[in-house]
């Protein structure tokens, strides 16, 4: 099983090269990264820190790009008939789903690492001294976001043979987590249930709810190794991360949230896909 999982992942990765996606994404990422590195380098003397704005910008970029190139990973193959060919070979549906996640994650991760490193090189060349711990943790946070959103988007793409369904779901994820509509949901529920009366969902429950997003999970997990995790990883996370975090912002809870988003949706989608006729 492992060999063929790797085979599908490699195919998916090289598809992004054969279809020139990686070059378009790479060019966009590198231009923006070098631009930030240049600005960061020039502003270094005034105490400007390179890593937080670089990571914040790339959280936005990797989310958009990963959802965009992954949302039709399976549905497009379904529509085009490629899935019929793959599943005529000794390749399982498990290989197709998880291989797609790995392949898409690898493609976006590669251009992300190259871009962030280039940005750092430019900034250093101009005299900046980026915080190495921030840089490493920030990069790990970005790669985690890539894995989560590749996993989510592939999950959407495995739900049906309609690319409309998968692209709508991908946009929904973007709106929930980047536009942070997630944090509005409890308020909407309260409004629907109680009008202007006493809210059904109390504030402390809402606080926990807000820390269940992928970005909050990444930020809270990063708190274990980086004091300035809030500054580096907190752009789309809920609230702020105190020095002594409560249980729902504890790094272990953050890791569990990250694992949930990376594993559970795609596994549920795989189970559904595995029982579908194609």
């Amino acid at each position: 099983m492992t060999e063929r999982l790797g085979l599908v992942a490699r195919k998916d990765f090289y598809d992004s090269i054969r279809e020139n996606q990686i070059y378009y994404i790479g060019t966009l990422f590198v231009l923006i990264a070098v631009g930030i590195g240049y600005l960061g380098g020039n502003a270094a003397v005034e105490g400007f820190e390179l890593v937080p704005p670089l990571v914040a910008t790339f959280f936005f970029l990797v989310t958009v790009v990963t959802l965009t190139i992954s949302h039709d990973a399976i549905s497009d193959k379904w529509v085009s008939g490629e899935l019929t060919v793959l599943l005529g070979l000794p390749i399982s549906r498990f290989d197709v789903v998880y291989g797609s996640v790995l392949g898409r994650t690898a493609a976006v991760s590669l251009v992300t690492v190259v871009s962030v490193l280039l940005s750092t090189v430019v900034a250093v060349a101009l005299g900046a001294s980026p915080d190495l711990a921030q840089l490493v943790v920030g990069l790990l946070g970005l790669l985690t976001a890539v894995a989560i959103f590749a996993s989510l988007a592939v999950a959407f793409s495995a739900l049906s043979d309609s690319t409309t369904v998968s692209s709508t779901a991908a946009f929904g994820a973007f709106a929930l987590f980047v536009f942070q509509l997630w944090s509005l949901l409890p308020s909407l529920v309260n409004l629907a249930l109680d009008g202007v009366g006493a809210p059904t969902i109390p504030d402390d429950t809402i606080e926990v709810w807000n820390n269940l997003t992928p970005f909050s999970g990444i930020r809270n997990a990063g708190g274990a190794v980086l004091e300035s995790a809030d500054q580096v990883l907190g752009v789309f996370a809920a609230g702020s991360l105190p020095a002594s975090p409560p249980a729902h912002q504890h790094p272990v809870f953050g890791v569990l949230v990250v694992l949930f988003w990376a594993v559970v949706p795609v596994t549920l989608a795989y189970l559904r896909f595995d029982s579908d006729d194609i």
Binding site: K11, D15, R18, E19, K77, S80, G81, E82, T84, V85, L86, L87, G88, L89, P90, I91, S92
Partner: peptide
């Protein structure tokens, strides 16, 4: 045993699409 079946089976489907840009 679908994978084991397909290890020993060659398939030419009626409708199919190419594997990406291979």
């Amino acid at each position: 045993n679908t994978v084991a079946v397909r290890e020993r089976t060659g398939v030419l489907p009626e409708t199919f699409g190419p594997l990406g840009e291979m």
